[in-house]
């Protein structure tokens, strides 16, 4: 059915028309560039012919109804879907011009450069300190204990958690509250000094206050990192992002400045979604 539609040239932007992405999906000097990406799980196709650029030091929000493929898309960016046995990715995905799916690209190195924060806070069964020190340790980033201490402290500071936990760095990470745990996971990701941070609905399991703190944090992090965030909350997308991409059933429907998307969506489906007609 999908192929039939794509062959129908020049049709108007209407419902269920996935022919081409509307809006400014391509930009200059992108950090990550995706061109014509298809993602399959076995026989099932999850992402269809998607092209999108992610700009440096800005936050891009990926929105859309659940099951639209936004999380899948996010996981293709640091090859987290390698762990799924029958997942296939085609098309070109580059990080600073380097092919992410090239044989020479090492997934370990890639993930050190493109970090990830998950939906549910998942601190390791270790102390707060060891949680943050985990990444630097495995990658050998610190030459001395003092250096490691410094990395841990700055990361916790950047994640806005240091003041709350400075007296109990040896306490287990799981002893923190949900919001604190998620900030710990962000600190853990920052400690490796990635270039890009992918966030998969980082606030969906948190209460409103913790969510507000995380959102503030994301805004601050933009200075040093490129951030892609998947969210099901349009308010959150509006608050934290500069650009927004709308996915529907595996298709990238519309991309644009966040303010523009929320005030003046050009695709019928985007409008339906943000006005709450479905989702």
């Amino acid at each position: 059915m999908q192929q039939g539609l794509t062959s129908e040239a020049g049709s108007v932007a209407g419902l269920n028309n996935f022919e081409a992405t509307i809006g400014e999906n391509l930009i200059d000097d992108a950090k990550i560039s995706v061109r014509h990406a298809d993602v399959f799980y076995g026989e099932k196709q999850a992402i269809f012919d998607t092209s999108l650029d992610i700009g440096r030091n800005q936050v891009i929000a990926l929105i859309g109804p659940s099951g639209c493929g936004k999380s899948t898309f996010l996981r293709t960016l640091n090859r987290m879907n390698d762990t799924i046995a029958d997942c296939r990715v085609s098309g070109s995905l580059t990080l600073d011009g380097e092919d992410i799916y090239d044989k020479k690209m090492d997934p370990v190195l890639l993930r050190a450069r493109v970090g990830m924060v998950f939906q549910k806070p998942n601190p390791f069964p270790k102390s707060i300190y060891d949680n943050v020190a985990y990444g630097p340790r495995i990658h050998g980033l610190a030459r001395s204990n003092a250096e490691l201490d410094e990395i841990v402290i700055t990361s916790l500071e950047k994640a806005g958690l240091f003041e709350e936990v400075k007296d109990r760095l040896t306490a287990p990470g799981t002893s923190l509250s949900g919001g604190q745990q998620q900030r710990l996971c962000i600190a853990r990701t920052i400690a490796v000094s990635p270039e890009v941070i992918l966030m998969d609905e980082p606030a969906s399991a948190l209460d409103p206050i913790a969510t507000a703190i995380i959102e503030e944090l994301i805004d601050e992090l933009r200075e040093n990192f490129t951030i892609a965030i998947v969210t099901h909350s349009m308010q959150q997308a509006a608050r934290v992002s500069q650009r927004t991409a709308y996915f529907h059933l595996g298709h990238l429907v519309e991309v644009g400045e966040t303010s523009r998307i929320f005030t003046n969506p050009r695709h019928q489906m985007t409008e339906n979604y943000i006005t709450g007609k479905f989702g």
Binding site: D106, L109, I138
Partner: peptide
């Protein structure tokens, strides 16, 4: 930079 440090350790880790 970090990327190079990580790269250096990779062989051993693999």
């Amino acid at each position: 930079n970090n990327t190079e440090i990580v790269k250096q350790g990779l062989k051993k880790r693999y």
